[in-house]
Amino acid sequence: MATAIAIARVKDLFASVMLTGIYSLLSAVFFVLMDAVDVAFTEASVGAGISTILMLSTLTLTGQYEDPTRHKTRTALVVVLVTGALLIFGTADMPRFGDPQTPVQTHVGPHYLEKSYEEIHVPNVVTSVLASYRGFDTFGETVVIFAAGIGVLSLLGFSGRKEKTTISVSAPMYQHRILRVVGKVLIPPILLFALYVQFHGDFGPGGGFQAGVIFAAAIILYTMLFGRQAAEEVIKLSWVRLLAAVGVMLYGSVGLISFLNGKNFLDYSALAADAVSGQHYGILLVELGVGITVTAVMILVFFSFAGRVDKKAEENE
């Protein structure tokens, strides 16, 4: 909370981005305390990782300091305080925190905890709810990511293919030899870890989304160390774009297969003779789809921003 207030106060945008990162990490810790390990994992990788990187790239493009003038501070304070007070009043009869007898704990939740193991046979209940019970939400989520990717692409596009500059600006850490060596050593394990997270989602925290983010992080790291052009040699961006689509379609086609087999959309029990192993296959494939899309979109988004940074740098020269 103090961090949040600090964000509000600090005028140096760079500092506030850092604070946002810290804030995210703190909330991740909070989520762990609240038993939401999956969520914490995601919040850490997204809030502290991806969004920080994106904000930093934006700031390199736009300038670091904000205009200190404030609009309507007094009105804002009054309005916010009044609303806050009203809302706190509104919490008065909320179910008590941690109470096992609240409707949330007694109505639908127990079904997942009690039945999911026999129905799906996956220990991580979050995964089974995510990928199977509410698989359609997750499908939607994948599409949201995809849509965001499309949006960023349409706004920023790939930068035009320029002749190779020796040192790309978007490789800010190129000069640090040690970092490069360490990076080279680190990247393969990160990729491996990503794959582990991808396929271990059934048993522990993790799954397609987190894996995708980590995977993308590895590639982003590579780019930072070796420059965008080098990275683009390793991965072709138009292919990445296709991959983003393929991820969504993989998810969708799992659903389609199930209803070609006469079951409802995303009913994984149609995938194999045995309903439970069908669920297994289904979750695996679906998580893979999510992972692919997330990786691809994250890379695309990062490259779009990085491309702009490069372009601006070139213009400045």
């Binding site: 499908f139 774009r241 379609m249 086609s253």
Partner: peptide, 8 residues
Amino acid sequence: LLAAPTCL
């Protein structure tokens, strides 16, 4: 929904 990625 599926037609959208297909467009690519």
